[in-house]
Computed example of a mutant assay.
Amino acid sequence: MQRELSVGEVAERSGVAVSTLHFYEARGLIRSRRTAGNQRRYPREILRRIAVIRVAQRAGIPLATIAAALATLPEGRTPDASDWQALSQAWR
């Protein structure tokens, strides 16, 4: 079983503030699950998603457009290189 990351671990590894992670989650850009103690837990692949969000923002892509693109990614599996390539092509 893959270990999940806490919000603090995600913030530290991604270089994004905890408040930004909460903002991304409120906007539907990322998702977490809640523990019995109501703490957020993220899968490790969230780090790549956050990296894509940050790069897209730096390229001037609006958050609504980023959210719509991320919504096209597969639900039941971790996005692979071809999925990220498709997003990149769509934004060009």
Rank of each mutant, 00 (worst) to 15 (best):
P43T: 03
A11I: 02
A67F: 03
A64W: 00
W91T: 10
L73V: 05
D83W: 10
E45L: 08
Y24E: 05
L47D: 07
S88I: 04
D80E: 13
N38E: 13
S32T: 04
S14L: 07
H22K: 14
N38G: 01
I53F: 06
R49T: 15
P62L: 04
I66N: 02
N38L: 11
R92D: 06
Q2H: 13
P79C: 08
A64F: 03
G76W: 02
R49M: 12
Q89T: 13
R58W: 08
P43H: 12
A71W: 02
R44Y: 00
A56L: 15
E25K: 11
A36N: 12
T78E: 13
A36W: 03
S19G: 08
Q89W: 08
M1A: 11
R33G: 05
Q39R: 15
N38V: 06
T35V: 02
R31N: 07
V18P: 00
I50A: 09
L87C: 11
E4S: 03
G8F: 05
L47Y: 09
R48Q: 14
G76D: 12
R31A: 06
R41T: 09
L5C: 05
T72P: 00
R40E: 01
T20V: 07
T78W: 02
E25H: 10
A17F: 01
R54S: 08
A86Y: 03
A26E: 14
R48K: 14
Q2G: 03
A71P: 01
G28C: 07
L5D: 03
Q89D: 15
I50S: 06
V55T: 13
L29T: 00
A59F: 11
P62I: 03
P74R: 04
V55G: 03
Q85L: 15
L21C: 09
A36L: 14
S19W: 02
V52L: 11
G76I: 00
R34F: 02
L87S: 07
A51D: 13
R58Q: 14
L63Y: 14
Q39V: 08
E12K: 14
S19C: 00
A36M: 07
T72W: 03
A68N: 09
P43Q: 10
G28P: 08
R44M: 00
L87A: 09
V16L: 06
R13H: 09
L47K: 07
M1V: 10
L73C: 08
Y24G: 09
S88V: 02
T65R: 15
Q85S: 14
I46A: 15
A81C: 00
R48P: 01
S14K: 03
R13M: 15
P79I: 02
W91I: 09
T65I: 03
Q57N: 01
F23T: 07
R54H: 04
I30P: 10
R41K: 14
A59V: 04
F23R: 13
A81K: 08
S82N: 12
G37R: 14
A90E: 11
D83L: 09
S32I: 03
S19D: 11
I53N: 08
Y24D: 09
Y24M: 07
R44G: 00
T35N: 05
E25F: 12
G76S: 06
I46N: 04
R3A: 13
S88L: 12
V10F: 06
L21G: 06
T20L: 05
S14C: 07
R13W: 09
P74L: 08
R33D: 10
R3P: 06
P74W: 09
L29C: 11
R27H: 13
Y24W: 10
R58Y: 08
R54F: 00
